[in-house]
Design a protein around this nucleic acid. Structure first.
Ligand code: FES
Ligand code: FES
Lengths: 141, 141
DNA sequence: TTATTAAAAGATAAAAATATCTTTTATTCT
DNA sequence: AGAATAAAAGATATTTTTATCTTTTAATAA
């Protein structure tokens, strides 16, 4: 499915959504330890997300990563596309160079439905909404 | 989604379903060239599928790979599970070590539905049925 | 039996993904 | 201004996946 990097990134974004805001930023260390994910590797991912404006960051003392209000009102699709690329939602399930309805592979029409479901999975709730559910229902990330 | 290996394997199985039978076996070369896939690499995948009895093979002159009647009455699930492992249909979408409804991640319940769809995609038609559709509708593999 | 064929198996190589370490830059606090 | 902090950037290392090459084994045909 999603790459390991992408999964780390989604979890980290949710962690930040829950534990950070503009006044309470989080360092890589705390986040990586909480998620049990390699720190320097997560740092790269967070930097990439920050460059793409999917999360926010500041340097220096009291600096760190956090989700701005705007960040947390977005959904996870941007995070996934930023790390794994937009093709995860549009590429042929058999790996053919192009996925098209005019020249489809035998699994195409069903794959469309399935991919739509995947898209909805990451698109139809905001990061903030997902984060709230995690808190209320004590879900794991 | 599925690994490159898995995609190669699925396409090769469909190609064999269409172009081979117990009397007309196919060599790796023909198959790999038809699918535009690296030959020695495909050979490994076919050998693995053969060991797992998802396709058939014989050595020597007129030997090669083919789908027995039994092989072509199976579905693609076995092929996928043989190459990518059964976890593709059961692992947590966020990469948590266990996926369980008693201790779920925030995407779990939707992920269940999505994974079910993926399973149906490869499970609800036999290889033979898919192959016939490819022939009748001139689909790409 | 011998030559030929093609898969099976094993060894090696290249590329991509994942992981780590070091240096630099921006920010804050004293 | 100077010291401390933490991200940003860059360089390096490891692991996994993908790809290739060589040798061996089994089957067929002459
Ligand atoms: S052509 Fe294969 S999924 Fe669209
Ligand atoms: S726990 Fe994450 S998908 Fe089931």
């Amino acid at each position: 499915m999603f790459s390991k990097s992408c999964k780390y990134a989604m979890r980290a974004v949710l962690y930040l959504a829950i534990h950070s805001d503009a006044e309470h930023k989080l360092g890589v260390k705390e986040t990586s330890e909480a998620l049990e994910v390699p720190g320097p590797f997560l740092a790269k991912l967070l930097q990439q997300l920050s460059r793409h404006h999917l999360i926010s960051s500041t340097k220096g003392p009291n600096g760190g990563f956090f989700l701005s209000e705007a960040n947390s009102k977005a959904n996870l699709r941007g995070v996934v596309e930023s790390i794994d690329g937009p093709e995860v939602f549009s590429s042929c399930i058999l790996g053919l160079p192009v996925c098209s309805s005019t020249n489809p592979c035998p699994l195409h029409s069903r794959a469309l439905i399935y991919r739509q479901g995947l898209l909805e999975l990451v698109e139809d709730q905001t990061i903030k909404e997902v984060a709230h559910r995690v808190e209320r229902q004590e879900l794991k990330i």
